[in-house]
Design a protein around this nucleic acid. Structure first.
Lengths: 153, 153
DNA sequence: CTGCCTGCAAACTCTTTGCACGAAT
DNA sequence: ATTCGTGCAAAGAGTTTGCAGGCAG
């Protein structure tokens, strides 16, 4: 899946939902897909403004749910008071997140069993799964002992 | 594990940490252990005030981390902007949470493999696990279709 | 043209904090 | 007597929202 595909997909999603294709929404899309890592709403705002300085914080916050809904962005909650996002070039596979509390970096790894597990467990309670995630919080032992974290900026 | 054991454990934990055993802390403890379900900080405040009207919101928020640290309370983040807590009478097993977005209820189920999975995955990134959780978000199909959720108050 | 979108700033929610008083040890 | 703990209210952080004007369809 290339960025061109994604851009086209985004335009179609907007149209199909009766939403307008505005310069701001496109700028936010471009900014999001230029990150090669997880980013926060604030980081996205800063970067989107480099593409189109007129983008406001409100529009970023209004666009994020749309892009998550369209499955172009994944939303990740690591238990902090803000959320992380990541462009989803390759659609689909369930992933487990490992969040390092020392370097604040998010690592991801495929966890194909999760979907099965989610629906098995949900059905035990008479429910239908919407989403499932495994999140592992970890620390860097070396950083704790030596004050150096190889992932730390 | 009875509530008496837990109360004693709490007093010991406070003493061992050089923290004082105050009426407010005890009132918050009692309130927390009278819930037979998950509760929020605000619900805990309301209930603690029934035990001791002098308890303030600040003290509840200052006590929660202590009780979580002492393992008498479990903190659960379901991706909303506030946290849930639950008294932990039976210590220990890793659990997966199923959060129903229709009735906002949290169901739990043992997930003994989680600890193993967390350390296996963490070590792939050179990290040491601190905690791990599986969280499944689900909905009540019957509520969606018929407007009735058997778990809904 | 119509009405969805936008930027701005204020509002909101949950949580944390500074301060002076009060209570546990 | 010390010092930690407390209540109060204000601050804080991230996010949401009301409004008047702007732009896509």
């Amino acid at each position: 899946m290339t960025i061109e595909n994604c851009r086209e997909r985004f335009r179609e999603f907007l149209s199909n939902c009766g939403l307008r294709v505005t310069n701001q929404r496109l700028a936010i899309f471009e900014a999001a897909f230029e990150f090669d890592r997880h980013f926060t709403a604030e980081e996205l705002l800063d970067h989107a403004r480099e593409v189109d300085p007129s983008v406001s914080r409100a529009t970023v916050y209004r666009s994020l749910p749309i892009m998550v809904e369209s499955a172009l962005l994944r939303e990740i909650d690591v238990g902090k008071d803000f959320k992380y996002y990541r462009a989803e070039l390759a659609q689909g596979n369930q992933q487990a997140q490992v969040f390092c509390i020392d370097c604040e970096k998010i690592f991801e790894i495929d966890a194909p069993f999760m979907e099965w597990y989610g629906s098995t467990v949900s059905s035990k309670f008479g429910l239908v799964p919407v989403s499932q995630r495994i999140q592992i919080t970890a620390q860097c032992q070396r950083f704790r002992e030596e004050g150096v974290c190889k992932n730390r900026p």
